[in-house]
Write a protein that binds this DNA or RNA. Structure first.
Lengths: 151, 151
DNA sequence: CATATTCCTACCAAGAGAGTAGGATTTGTC
DNA sequence: GACAAATCCTACTCTCTTGGTAGGAATATG
């Protein structure tokens, strides 16, 4: 699995914050409750988002979290990349610059590189706002059945 | 990681068989040696390919494996799907028909479904033959720097 | 019959995934 | 100043997957 619960929950949190964010800081327990997820586990995931500069936080009573930017200024790629560490579909493509020692002669490498680019490209093209407004056409593209209603 | 060594090695085996396949059956030890992989581990991977109808096999002396079809008649998608079980990027999209119970109200589901389709689409568009002939344009698409040589 | 090969079952060690536990620190309110 | 509500921080644990290994049975060729 390329994206674990960590990345998935992180995205869920971001969506939740974007929806509730108008009225100031939202507490962890609030998020955990409305998404029905373990508060302790969410805590560790939010910590990653927070350290990565995705959120603003406030400690103490009435504290909580809110988005640091406008929803349209987050790509899904950066959210998942931060929480998952890498989104490469195979182990032989990890970070920029680092590559397998067989790379020069590996005939399957272009395939993995192409797959990686296709994934990255898709995730960079979708923003947090797209998810919130339910932009199915952008997310599902030609596979969206409800986008062009049957006559 | 979406594709483990199992899927990667399986693809390598298929490529190797396609290249050597003209002269009849190729033995496991032969493949393991030329790809420099553990023979015992490859054995378990080839067993999956063989049971899945991807290969023809012959036991006994001078036995071995060969492709069941022409390289151009294998998509990368089917090879990886067989060995990996699933290529879904997230756990909430597994098999056709089976879906998460929150699916109806999940705002992130269209994203995962779209990502899944993008991946599937890419892998269905590439054949074993494309890898063997090194069809970089098809694999790397717009990201292929060597496809349009600099003037 | 010897040898080279596939086939089959079982086992194992390390790491990742998915959380839990407990407490320290900070801030707002009474 | 005390208390409560919240974030922050470190460490631990359990289970499943990954990436193999071991040993031998069955089978075909010469």
């Amino acid at each position: 699995m390329m994206v674990s619960t960590k990345g998935r929950y992180a995205l869920t949190v971001m969506v939740d914050l974007a929806r509730k964010g108008e009225n100031g800081y939202v507490s962890l327990s609030d998020i955990a409750e409305s998404e029905n997820l373990s508060m302790k586990y969410l805590e560790s995931i939010i910590a990653i988002l927070n350290k990565g500069g995705m959120l603003k936080s406030l400690r103490g009573k009435n504290g909580g979290y809110m988005l640091a930017r406008d929803p349209k200024d987050y790509t899904i790629n950066e959210i998942l990349l931060l929480t998952e560490g890498t989104l490469a579909p195979v182990n032989c493509i990890m970070q920029e610059g680092v590559q397998c020692e067989k790379a020069a002669t590996c005939s399957t490498l272009p395939l993995w590189a192409g797959l990686d680019k296709v994934i990255e490209n898709y995730l960079k093209g979708i923003t947090l706002e797209d998810i919130i407004i339910g932009n199915r056409k952008k997310m599902l593209g030609e596979y969206c059945e409800s986008c062009e209603p049957a006559e």
